[in-house]
Simulated assay, not measured.
Amino acid sequence: MENLHIVFWLFKDIGWCLFWKPLGIVMIIPTLAISIVIVYRTRNMVSEMCHNLAITFWISANSYWMISEFLKFDALSFYGVITYKHLALIPFFLGVFCLAFYYVIWHPRHPNEIETM
């Protein structure tokens, strides 16, 4: 499933790069759906779950950014110098926080814990 996820992700980004709106937008659905399934399947392994959740937030941010460019509202002002494209930073930072939680809080407190599925 992880390998198929990468295929969908690549097609989504190819659609974005070539400005093929239908391909880019349609590929959001399977890419994000598989990402969420992977998070669910790894929920018993904190390391894997945190990394996969960060990837899910990354895909969400990336997809929002792509849509904002496709629909031409990316450069519009949201608040002062902050544009709508900058709102993609919210899920990007959520991904960073997932990894920070794992590496700064969880992992140091569980150094010898062996994770199993």
Rank of each mutant, 00 (worst) to 15 (best):
F92E: 10
A33P: 03
L23D: 08
L10A: 13
D13E: 15
H51W: 03
A88T: 10
Y84P: 09
N112T: 15
G15F: 03
T83E: 07
L94D: 07
W58M: 14
M49R: 09
I29T: 02
A33N: 05
M45H: 01
S77T: 12
N44M: 08
T42Y: 05
S68L: 14
L10M: 14
V39S: 04
R109E: 04
L32Q: 14
T31S: 12
F19H: 12
I105V: 14
E113R: 10
I82G: 03
M27R: 06
A54T: 03
S63W: 09
C98A: 11
V81P: 05
K85F: 13
W9A: 12
A33S: 14
I34E: 01
M1P: 05
V46R: 00
C17E: 04
T56W: 04
E48A: 10
A33D: 04
I105Q: 08
F92I: 12
S35K: 01
F101W: 11
L94M: 12
L89F: 13
I14E: 08
F19Y: 11
L99H: 04
N52D: 00
I6T: 05
V37I: 12
D13H: 14
H110A: 03
M49L: 06
I6A: 03
I36H: 00
T116Q: 02
K72D: 14
M49D: 04
A33F: 13
A54W: 02
G80E: 13
G95K: 14
S60M: 13
W65F: 15
V104T: 10
Y40L: 14
A75S: 15
I59K: 00
H5C: 02
G95N: 13
F19W: 11
D74F: 09
W20D: 04
A54G: 07
G80M: 06
F97Y: 14
W65H: 15
I82S: 01
L94Q: 10
I25Q: 07
F93C: 15
C98Q: 08
L18F: 09
I82D: 01
E113I: 11
M66T: 11
A88L: 06
V7K: 02
D13Q: 13
Y102F: 12
A61I: 06
K72E: 14
L76C: 03
I55V: 05
K12R: 11
P111E: 05
L32G: 08
K21N: 10
Y103T: 09
I25N: 08
W58I: 10
M49Q: 08
S47P: 03
I38A: 01
P30T: 10
F11S: 15
F11T: 13
T42S: 14
I114L: 00
I34Y: 02
A61W: 04
T83V: 10
L94E: 10
R109V: 02
F19V: 13
I55R: 01
N52I: 00
N112P: 11
L94N: 08
I29Y: 00
Y84L: 13
T116L: 02
L89I: 07
K72L: 10
Y84D: 11
V37N: 03
L32T: 06
I29M: 03
R109T: 04
V104W: 11
Y64Q: 06
L87E: 07
P111M: 09
F101H: 08
T116S: 02
E69F: 15
L76Q: 07
L99P: 06
G24W: 01
V37F: 05
L23F: 11
I6P: 00
E69W: 15
F93D: 10
I6Q: 00
I82N: 02
W65T: 12
V81F: 07
S47T: 09
